[in-house]
Every structure is written in structure tokens, then in C-alpha cells.
Amino acid sequence: MYGLEMAKGLLVTLTNLMRKPFTVAYPEQRVRQHPRFRGEEFTWYEERCTGCASCAKYCPLGIIKIVTSPSETAPLQGDKYLLETFDIELQRCMFCGLCVEACPYDALFMGSGFEEGQYRRTDLVISIDRLRQADKNPSTWFRPQLESMDYRPGTSRPLGWRDVGREGWRWHQREKAGMRLQGRNAEDDA
């Protein structure tokens, strides 16, 4: 009969009226965030970073600015550079994560947060100080080692630099790229 399908449509909307809303009321409730979520604020481990600027080179937009100078221990070949600037211009960032993919020493991670709204564009530049002070809640994006330890950025505790690498942290300190930092930080050796 003509009009029957229209009645069926009314029934569909009526059943949906009875259903629980699909909405997530954002500030109070949050959707489940998946561990691979590529968040806005980057997680950076200064201890792991050598200042090689692979991330800056691999960024499709060139928004990572790294300025280094030879450190005091520069004569020792293979020592890390002293990082003066590590700026990430979030306003142009498209969160593709290629910088994270390029990082050879697992020093840079995507973050898990996403509430970075600012009133001025200049505030959207993440400076090295902010990177240093930020909570370390790295996303597991492109970091299988975090996935295998079942790390959940939102709920698990923040990770220190020793726990996030592909290899053991001692390797980072001692052997990587011929890096020699003996005695520099006694606590770490302990």
C-alpha cells in the first residue's frame, strides 16, 4: 500500500527516540581514547635526544626548529649536542607523526592530549621548556614497544625516559652511537 514505507520511517525515528543518545557530553564525559591516538602536545625525552634533527628534516611542513651547539664535552666524538632550541609550531602541525617515525632513538613521541586551544597563535609554539616540563604521556603511535607493554596514555602512569625505548636504557646511555657519558650522572648509573 502506498504510504506504508513512510509509516515505516516514522517507526524508525520513534525507536530511535526511545534509544539512549549516542552523544558524548564532552567536557564531563570523554570518549575512550585509543593508545595510538596522535595527540597534540608532543612528548619529548631530552635524555634520549641527540639533537640529530631527523624529525625536523622529515617533517613535511618543516615546523620543528632545532638549534644545537657543541656541548662542553664536545671533543669526545659522538657526544650529543647541546640543545638550545626545540620549537614545534603547533599551529601548522598536521599531526601526521612522521617526525616520530623518523626519530632513531625514540626520543620524540606523539602526545596523548588534545586540548591545546590558545588565544594567540604565538602561544601555539611548544618551546623546549614546555617540552621538558610536560607530563610524559606518550602515545603508542609507531612505538610497538609501548604497545607490547600495554601502555595506555590516558590511564597508565607517565613514563620516564628509561621505560620508553626499543632497547634497554643502559644501551642508550652507554653504547648508542659511541656515546660516552660516564660519570656525568651518577644516579643513572646506579
Partner: peptide, 13 residues
């Protein structure tokens, strides 16, 4: 509100 519920969302709240 009603439209929201018909559309499976909440509406102004």
C-alpha cells in the same frame, strides 16, 4: 530537545 532525541543525540543541554 525532541529533535535531538529523534536523531539519537541530546539537544541543547
Amino acid at each position: 530537545r525532541l529533535l535531538g532525541r529523534f536523531q539519537n543525540r541530546v539537544g541543547p543541554n
